[in-house]
Amino acid sequence: MDTQSKIEIAGLRKQFGDLVVLKDINLSVDQGQVVALIGPSGSGKSTLLRCINLLVTPNGGQVRVGADSFAFGPGTKLPGTRALANFRAGTGMVFQHFNLFPHMTALGNVMEAPVTVRGTPKAQAREKALALLAKVGLADKVDEYPSRLSGGQKQRVAIARALAMEPDVMLFDEATSALDPELVGEVLGVIQKLASEGMTMVIVTHEIAFAREVADRVIFMRDGVVVEEGPARQVIDAPREAATQAFLGHFHRGGAAQPASEAI
């Protein structure tokens, strides 16, 4: 495998029962690169993202993030819970529905993993958490419980929570899909800031304009395979494949409303 890249996926297969969700996926992401995964629902992009931090266990193939590598398939042993936990501690993930811990304040959410997983002293974790919450623009909300925060604020807490583990890689699973339209911007702003700081990121998104703006590469998936991939602007502005063209035809680009009638 290529040792220069940060993330390396080779021959990845996943099926749920008889349903094959991912068929022989190969993917490599360089250090500091931002990759956007786009495609219709059911295309397998979220499952692929979850295979990168092994929240979903692949049926075959190899997954490597940084120096940690796992192989799956016949004859391989599934990684133990300790190995899995250590591996996941190095990748941050942000979920569509935030999944904040409702019994903890914003500050508690961000402090939780460093204290519980890494054994960081509380005072130190607190200082770090306060800095991260300030970074995502929530310095005034540190003592609020998630139920008192807006969707956009929740998602920014979730980003701070993931960053508290100082991950090498950040994974975003439709981080803005559950947000009211007027709250999408504040979350995208934080993601953009991370990109400019050189964070390696894989982003599953329906925000095509954002993917075009922030991602270095765009991967279009359909029915469990990568249909097209390339530089973000090239794939989005001038897709080669018919499936990509049809999918992108659903989105209004350039801010001007377009008639949706020509879409499939």
């Binding site: 996941r88 941050g92 993930m93 979920f95 993993a113 997983v117 929570r161 583990m165």
Partner: peptide, 27 residues
């Protein structure tokens, strides 16, 4: 408890035991 809770705990690097003790049981 919403399955997203243990999932978020796992994504942060918690073991199933830590997730049970810190995240799931308290809720």
């Amino acid at each position: 408890i919403d399955p997203g809770q243990p999932e978020a705990a796992a994504a942060l690097g918690m073991t199933p035991f830590q997730a049970m003790r810190r995240i799931i049981l308290p809720q």
